[in-house]
Structures are given as structure tokens and as C-alpha cells.
């Protein structure tokens, strides 16, 4: 077996592995386009039947545009909020000299070691006391600070020459203006990467929105899809179609921006999930 594997040239073997990662997504697409008779055929086939009608049915069963809108809105506000807080904190941790700076940074990194289990229930109580359960804010505020963002931005700020700041200060420039007009314009790519990560995380989050929302009109796509899965567990074509059109936007985004995502992983080595 091992010897047989060795004979396969690397590019071919690599392609086989790569395609096997693609196969589940491809198979879902095949299922969604099957004819009714073809779904229940064993062994399964991997060719398209092009039955688009099931898409229209799956699409009209739920108010998908509303859920997509909710997901995008929640993600966008989370990105804006988390980027703002991260930029300010990372700047303080790299350009402002103060006692205890390293301690503060360690305390922030410590957050990564605290498992989510620890604060799920209290966060729910906090939001209940603020009367925010079942709102957009309940899905945004807990993600208002991004440790990953602070970490990456600080790392970047530290590579900027200190002379920039010295020169700017000589000209009577304050921290805020220096940050806005000198430091920020240079870290656009990193801001973009962090934003992408927050977007993917926000799009894919399930547990927290399940916990803090009941009303459909504030729920994101993933929660709606979980409900759709509950209600249609026998119609595999319909389910597959819903799976395809809720996953596709993220896949397209990934394909467009994969360079940024890969760079983020290789550099940040920080956060998963």
C-alpha cells in the first residue's frame, strides 16, 4: 500500500487530496440539483440533474433575505466596533509609554486562555439585566473587543519606526492625530484581514445567537438554517439547496480574499474558531 502510494507523483496525489476536501461541497450541490427519484438511489452518483425548481421552493419557505440582512448587519457593526477598540488599544500598547504596559498586554492575552464556557451564562444574565436579550446588540456587544485584532495590530505598530512619532511630536502632533493620519493608513491590509476574520466568525456563529434570540426578525442565517434543518429533515434536496445558498456567499468571499486569510493565519497564529 505504502509503496503504491509512493509511486503516485506528488502533483497527482496533492490533487486527489485537494479534491477530496472539495467533494462534500460538490456532493451537496449534486444532491440539491437531483431529480426526486435520483436522490434515493444507491450507490449515489456524482453527476448533475439540473433540477433548479427545488431552489425556488427552499427560498420561498423562509424569509431568507431578512436573515441575510441580519447576518450582514450584525457582522458589519461588530467589525466597526471591534476594529475601533482594537486600534485604540493596540496603539496604546505600542506607541504610548506607560508603566505596566507589558502587564496590560499579558492580561489581554489571558483572555485567550479563558474558555467560552466560563462566561456564557453570566453574559446572558448581563444582557438580560440590560434588557438586550433578543436584540441585535445582544449578538454584537460580547464581541466588542477582539484580542486577535489587538494582537495583530500591536505587532504591526511595533514595526513602525519610532522616529515617525518623534518627528510628529516635534511638529506638535498629538497621539490621536498621529494615529489617524500616519499609523492607520499604513495598516489597511491588516485591518482588512482582521475585518475578514470577524466577518467569518460572525457569519458562522451559532451557539450564542441561539441562546440570546427567539424572535425571527433579529436572527442570523445560521440560526434560521438550523431551524430549517429541524423542520425539513426528510427533504434532502430542499435542505441541500438551502445549504448551498447560505454557504455560497462565504465561499465566494473566501475565494476572493484567500490571500488575506492565509496571511492572517500564518502571521497571527492566534485564534481559532
Amino acid at each position: 500500500m505504502a509503496r503504491a502510494l509512493k509511486k503516485i507523483p506528488r502533483p497527482v496525489f496533492g490533487l486527489l487530496i485537494g479534491l477530496s476536501f472539495l467533494l462534500p461541497l460538490y456532493f451537496t450541490l449534486v444532491t440539491s440539483l437531483d431529480t426526486k427519484a435520483d436522490v434515493f438511489r444507491f450507490p449515489p452518483h456524482l453527476t448533475f440533474d439540473w433540477q433548479w425548481s427545488v431552489y425556488a421552493r427552499a427560498w420561498h419557505m423562509f424569509r431568507w433575505p431578512m436573515y441575510f440582512g441580519n447576518t450582514v448587519l450584525i457582522a458589519a457593526v461588530t467589525i466597526a466596533l471591534a476594529l475601533t477598540t482594537s486600534i485604540l488599544a493596540a496603539y496604546a500598547l505600542s506607541f504610548i509609554e506607560f508603566r505596566g504596559r507589558n502587564l496590560v498586554f499579558s492580561l489581554i492575552l489571558l483572555v485567550l486562555m479563558i474558555p467560552a464556557e466560563a462566561h456564557l451564562i453570566p453574559n446572558y444574565i448581563t444582557l438580560a439585566k440590560m434588557n438586550l436579550v433578543d436584540t441585535y446588540w445582544a449578538q454584537i456587544l460580547p464581541y466588542g473587543a477582539s484580542v486577535f485584532g489587538i494582537f495583530l495590530l500591536r505587532q504591526f505598530f511595533l514595526t513602525l519606526p519610532k522616529d515617525y512619532w518623534e518627528a510628529a511630536r516635534m511638529d506638535g502632533c498629538g497621539h490621536l492625530r498621529f494615529l489617524w493620519s500616519v499609523a492607520l493608513p499604513q495598516c489597511k491590509p491588516i485591518l482588512f484581514t482582521i475585518g475578514l476574520y470577524i466577518f467569518i466568525g460572525s457569519w458562522n456563529s451559532l451557539m450564542w445567537p441561539l441562546m440570546v434570540t427567539q424572535s425571527h426578525h433579529v436572527q442570523p442565517v445560521e440560526v434560521a438554517l438550523a431551524r430549517f434543518l429541524d423542520g425539513n429533515s426528510v427533504d434532502w434536496r430542499r435542505l441541500s439547496a438551502a445549504s448551498v445558498f447560505t454557504t455560497l456567499p462565504v465561499v465566494i468571499m473566501f475565494l476572493i480574499f484567500q490571500k488575506h486569510i492565509i496571511r492572517g493565519i500564518s502571521r497571527g497564529e492566534g485564534v481559532k474558531g
Partner: peptide, 24 residues
């Protein structure tokens, strides 16, 4: 390109792709 294929599932939402796997 091959790296992209291997990384692609990472970006996909769990419920969405779990549906495909439930059927697999």
C-alpha cells in the same frame, strides 16, 4: 490552488456544511 482547496472548508459555516455531511 491545492492549499486553497484544503483550507476552503474552514471558512464555511458549520450548519450549512453539516447538512451536506448529514446526507453523506
Amino acid at each position: 490552488f491545492l492549499r486553497t482547496l484544503v483550507l476552503l472548508p474552514y471558512a464555511t459555516p458549520a450548519v450549512g456544511t453539516a447538512i451536506g455531511w448529514l446526507w453523506i
